[in-house]
Simulated assay, not measured.
Amino acid sequence: MGAERAARGGGPRQAAHEHGVDRRAAARLPPGGRAVRPSHRQAHARLDAYAAARLADGAYAARAWRHFLTPSLPWEYGHDRDWSAGQVRTTLNPSTGAPWVLTPGTAQFALSAIQCLALIGDRLP
């Protein structure tokens, strides 16, 4: 079965991944919304924070905070996000929540926040 799946191109999950479509995230987009590859800009700000701390370079620190604090895509965390809860019916038990919030993105954002504060918290704009 593995060889057969490989011959077909890896199946629907692989095809969705290669085209940058996360079906769960796509279900949460507004009508007419477009599924694109997720941005890791906020999560990767910690790499610049590490470089800033290791090299004592203020330019890296400024870039880290700029990338972390100014989201470039609609689903990244920002100060002006709409946090109103709505019905979520894509779970086993219907619940309420902000439909754009996903656990992996939230975890990456939180880890980046912790690391940026620990490494370059004294350079917070």
Rank of each mutant, 00 (worst) to 15 (best):
R8Y: 10
W83G: 05
G78A: 14
A61V: 01
R23M: 14
F68A: 09
P125F: 12
D57S: 07
A43F: 03
A56W: 01
S95H: 06
Q108P: 00
H67P: 00
E4K: 03
F109M: 06
V88P: 00
A27G: 06
I114Y: 15
C116W: 00
G32L: 05
S72K: 03
P99I: 12
V88G: 01
A107M: 09
R34E: 12
T91V: 11
L55I: 00
P104H: 11
S112N: 08
A62M: 06
E18Q: 09
A52I: 03
A56H: 07
W65N: 00
G9S: 07
D82Y: 09
A107P: 01
R89K: 06
L73V: 04
A49G: 01
P125N: 15
G121H: 09
A61P: 01
A25L: 09
L69K: 04
P38E: 15
G86S: 11
R81L: 15
Q14M: 09
A110V: 05
R63D: 06
V101R: 13
A62T: 01
A56G: 03
H79C: 12
A16R: 08
G32N: 04
P94H: 03
P30T: 05
T106F: 14
V36M: 08
L47W: 07
A16D: 11
A118H: 10
R54A: 14
A7D: 14
D80G: 08
L29Y: 14
P94E: 02
L111H: 05
G11F: 00
L92Y: 04
H40T: 04
V88E: 14
H44Y: 08
A107G: 05
A49S: 02
A52E: 01
G9E: 01
A113M: 12
P94R: 03
V36L: 14
A3Y: 06
R34D: 12
S39F: 02
A15F: 10
Q42P: 03
A3W: 04
W65V: 00
A61E: 01
W83D: 10
A98E: 10
Y60C: 08
T103F: 11
P30I: 07
I120T: 06
F68M: 12
R66H: 13
A52M: 10
R123P: 02
A62K: 07
E18K: 04
T70H: 15
L102Y: 09
W75Y: 11
S39A: 12
G105N: 13
G20H: 09
A107H: 05
D122I: 02
G105S: 13
F109G: 00
Y60M: 02
A98Y: 01
L102S: 07
M1I: 13
Q108K: 05
F109L: 14
G78S: 11
A27N: 05
E4M: 07
A62S: 12
E4Q: 05
A45D: 02
A85P: 00
Y60A: 11
L29A: 10
R46N: 09
T70R: 14
A64E: 01
Q87N: 05
N93T: 05
A61F: 03
P99V: 12
L92V: 05
G32C: 02
P31F: 15
A113W: 12
R5W: 06
D122G: 06
G20V: 04
V88R: 13
Y60F: 12
